[in-house]
Amino acid sequence: MSSVLMVGVDGSECGERAVEFAARRARNSGARLYITYIIEWSPFTFSTAMENAERHQRREEEIQRAHSEIVDPVVERLKTEGLDVEGLVRHGHVADTLNSLAKSKGVVNIILGRQGTSKLKAHVFGSVGSRLVQSAECAVTVVP
């Protein structure tokens, strides 16, 4: 029985380090790997009627762009190495969505890069890593 890992990427260098870390472990253990990008989104925002009318189309575009610019290049690269990789793009609150997605995919370890957020920003908005560490139902690894 091989394990399942999930990496949260955000297109930054920290995300890249998390991918390398996870890929190394997957190579050694033969684990299945999910490369996940969460588009920050809240169901409780305010928008105009015009924006609502275009929302469905914008959402498709956002998902496509996240795939083509961030997730897919990583997935392709790791696939050529022979790893079992799949890319996922979702909308939602980043930490909560990673958690629920991990649960539904039977993930045993979520791997994140340490974010370079300032102390103040993390204090006000909370960082994805610390929120996830507190709420996750599986192991969380933060890669420095």
Partner: peptide, 25 residues
């Protein structure tokens, strides 16, 4: 409140957003 919100449809227009838009008019 989103009790019946389909997680697969995250990113689409929610009930809250449609109501808020209508109210602002």
């Amino acid at each position: 409140r989103g009790d019946y919100h389909d997680p697969e449809a995250a990113g689409e227009v929610t009930h809250f957003q449609a109501l808020a838009t209508a109210l602002s008019g």
